[in-house]
Nucleic acid binder design. Structure first.
Lengths: 339, 339
DNA sequence: CTGTTAGCGCATTCAA
DNA sequence: TTGAATGCGCTAACAG
């Protein structure tokens, strides 16, 4: 006589002729089992195709077996890779990911920061793109283990993992400057955003190492979007005689670099002959564009894995303080720079 | 005296001075409650910040409250949008998404088809990119409600929702052909893949409506990747006198169109002056490219929403048979075509 | 209309 | 070393 639905611990125990608690102990290795019984239990599990019911287990163990991810949007491949990295790490612990997408501008960040605790999670990874530290996040860290990924937030004592933006920017900046061009310009990212400041710092180091005076290098602010790259480049290249417009452009990300390239082309300038361009991120379009964009590649997957690892350790009781991990980046040489 | 952890039904009942089942009935609207009691319960819930424990509820209700998604990879924005659409629909039913990424080639499709039933889900949405119907999927549909999204699979009786690929291709094809060019060529997608066949059929209709003879139009097969677009275009444009090479190119997707554009440029041909190009999908790079690519936009979000809706209805017991829904697409006119 | 009670499947005491 | 019994928080009879 078949019992309805999937097999339970009780079914296995009956089949093997042992007590429920013995099967449970066998599965969780929580106490020694006589080899003979172990064999019978193993066979019964196989025969009934038994799989523990995670809901019952978690209910009993008073845990969520889930970690929350607050992220702008998964349709951005970079964030999707971070999520994949997290997933990769936590799936080994039989944990699942509870997603909260706050929208491209972070509009629903407060909303989800309030909601996630109620959804019952064991910890939270925050990928923010606002550059601020909202009150809602402050309250979150009082109640849950929290780890910051990709974008740093000031003023809170939680672990962080991201890319070494400064060093990456410095390296690609020096590559661009090695062309010997002397009319450099920078398109920087949103004010107050950690990654933008770090990349700008890296570009400044590169400029300094090539003996540029700060006052000679125009710095235009964008907001990481393609359109803002168009606007920034317009102010740099349109209405200026070509002999005065920049001949080397350091952009804080690929989207803005690509937007700038459109304007540069419209201005009748050639890339890289008239203008050398570099970006940051290595988005897919960087390689498809003509000319293909020299940029800096980050390992979003590794950021996700590392963030999950830090969070799991925090959940396990370890005090990581405000540990900061900055993962290395790699420069991808393509066709917008000169060898 | 505080109880440990979050408030439970019992806490609320005690606080409001009613029975546990009354609170449950109030929350689930499962029977009428005296207004007076309702107020007391509502206040108690608010005061204790009570949130029902979903794990306990689902355990009791013998359901997973989760639907499985088998998808190639979330780092592809198109699939990510489908997932967002599903998420949007099922979150209203308090259900969560259990993700299974099979990899860009679908390598782990069998693996996850076996694993998902064990993870306990109430139903499954399959987004396949193989074009075949693996045995594992056949077995899946015997045990679970299954809905196919985006890519159709032959030989199984399950609901399907995707885009109207044929009509979209026909429309954009006719736009390209309206230029009056007479040396047309097609780059088609993977053999046996439903979307590829549908788009090819649409392009054929467009060609027929402009009185092209089938034998006059070279059709080169690609596999939807950028590189395959490069290879296909190489066979079409390189080593051929420009007066004989195609002057209008219909590609089955944007990635291949973009790859082809690189080759066309290398061949010294201008777009759209010498060659008109169209694609399909409207990926972000299509708009950033120079010239920007005329293509067909699909609503991946709507595909996800609709698939979730069909699945929820199937889970609820409705028999949808092999209902097929093909959502409309829109042509996005850009700079690789002539007005 | 409301309260009491019996499990959902599991981990974990406590006896044996 | 093993088994019986308890309850995690909840829904759904059932009795009042």
């Amino acid at each position: 006589m078949m019992s309805r639905g999937p097999a339970t611990l009780r079914d296995v125990a009956g089949h093997a002729g042992v007590a429920i608690s013995t099967v449970s102990a066998y599965i969780n290795q929580t106490r020694p089992i006589t080899p003979e019984l172990a064999v019978r239990i193993r066979d019964a599990i196989r025969e009934l195709d038994f799989v523990p019911n995670a809901q019952a287990r978690n209910l009993r163990m008073r845990r969520a077996a889930s970690i929350g991810l607050i992220v702008p949007e998964l349709s951005n491949p970079f964030f999707a890779f971070i999520a994949e990295g997290i997933e990769d790490r936590i799936s080994r612990e039989q944990m699942t990911l509870t997603l909260s997408q706050t929208g491209p501008t972070g509009a629903r960040e407060d909303f989800y920061a309030e909601l996630l605790p109620r959804a019952r999670v064991d910890g939270i990874i925050v990928v923010s793109n606002t550059g601020k530290t909202p009150m809602s996040i402050m309250r979150l860290i009082e109640r849950f283990p929290v780890v910051l990924a990709d974008e740093y937030m000031p003023g809170i004592r939680v672990p962080f993992v991201g890319s070494d933006n400064r060093r990456g920017a410095r390296t690609v900046g020096e590559l661009a400057l090695s062309s010997g061009r002397r009319r450099a310009a920078v398109i920087t990212g949103p004010e107050g955003l950690w990654s933008a400041e770090a990349r700008l710092a890296g570009y400044r180091e590169a400029l300094a190492s090539y003996s540029f005076a700060e006052s000679d290098v125009p710095i235009v602010r964008g907001d990481y979007t393609f359109d803002s790259g168009v606007r920034a480049a317009t102010s740099l290249f349109i209405g200026t005689p070509a002999t005065n417009s920049p001949d080397v452009l350091l952009a804080a990300n690929d989207l803005m670099a690509l937007g700038a390239m459109r304007v540069i082309r419209q201005a009748g300038l050639r890339i890289p002959e008239d203008v050398v361009v570099v970006g940051f991120d290595d988005i897919p379009a960087a390689d498809m564009m003509h000319p293909s964009l020299t940029t800096v590649s980050q390992s979003a997957f590794a950021i996700g894995q590392t963030a999950a690892d830090l969070l799991l350790r925090t959940i396990a009781g370890e005090d990581l303080g405000d540990e900061r991990i900055e993962l290395p980046t790699t420069v991808v040489r393509r066709s917008t720079t000169i060898d």
